[in-house]
């Protein structure tokens, strides 16, 4: 998808951001850290929990964790490019590792985690429902808990963690919207600039040729098509013939 393509549907995000409707990063981090803490405290055997926001390229962009052990175990996954959280993010399905020392799915990460004293974990996807209801929920990251005991977690722990991941995902999605809005503001700026250049040129032609607005636009369109130039370029020439004449 091009940046411009995303623009039309997400214009409201820009206005939400500039009018302060979107949460700021410190607020989001704080709330997500609290949710991770709730996961840690409600799951027996947990030694730490965390949530990681993962971008479209599979890179972690923001994390909240209850302690440095969780941070370290996460860092290992992204360094190795493999691990339960990345798989959970890619597949949008939960994953449970009952014993890091002999898990065949992620042997390298498992061995490294075990050296940190982490022996089991569960990871669930952070899913954001599609607001239009037209497509499947988007997976924006993973939430996980670790234990220093093997087989510390079961299906019920997975359920509890999934319940907590819901609100965490929604809050983190707010942060994503903010980042997207920042990028899109540049596209909006370009579009508004080009609009005003074309509008101004149209006004100049109306005055110069004593024609209607539609006829002035037609003059520019005809010139653009004959000379195979973009309409904005033709408009720029009308506004500043000397300047554009010097351009290659």
């Amino acid at each position: 998808m091009t940046r411009k393509h995303q623009m039309a549907g997400e214009l409201p995000e820009i206005f939400a951001r500039v009018t302060g409707l979107l949460l700021t990063e410190p607020v989001v981090d704080h709330v997500v850290a609290n949710i991770a803490q709730a996961a840690h405290q409600s799951l027996a055997g947990s030694v730490g929990a965390g949530a990681t926001l993962i971008d479209a390229q599979g890179r972690p962009t923001s994390t909240a964790s209850t302690n440095s052990l969780v941070k370290e175990a996460d860092r290992l996954q992204y360094e190795l490019g493999d691990g339960p959280c990345l798989s959970v993010w890619a597949s949008a399905r939960p994953a449970r590792v009952d014993d890091l020392r002999d898990d065949r799915r992620w042997p390298e990460w498992g061995a490294a985690g075990a050296r940190l004293g982490l022996l089991s974990c569960i990871s669930v996807p952070l899913l954001v429902p599609d607001v239009t209801g037209r497509s499947a929920p988007e997976c924006i990251g993973a939430m996980k808990v670790y234990s220093d005991q093997p087989h510390a977690f079961d299906e019920r722990s997975e359920e509890v963690l999934s319940l907590l991941a819901g609100p965490a995902a929604l809050i983190l999605a707010n942060l994503q919207a903010r980042e997207r809005a920042a990028r899109l503001s540049d596209v909006l700026k370009d579009a508004l600039h080009s609009r005003s250049v074309i509008d101004l040129a149209k006004g100049v032609l109306m005055e110069r040729l004593h024609v209607t607005e539609r006829d002035a636009l037609q003059v520019m369109i005809t010139s653009a098509r004959t000379r195979e130039l973009r309409l904005t370029r033709v408009a720029q020439e009308i506004l500043d013939p000397a300047e554009t004449g010097r351009m290659p």
Binding site: A8, G9, A191, R195, L231, T232
Partner: peptide
């Protein structure tokens, strides 16, 4: 063409 992409371009032309 994609209709969103077209609208965006049309919008940027005024």
């Amino acid at each position: 063409l994609d209709v969103d992409e077209l609208w965006m371009h049309y919008f940027s032309m005024g």
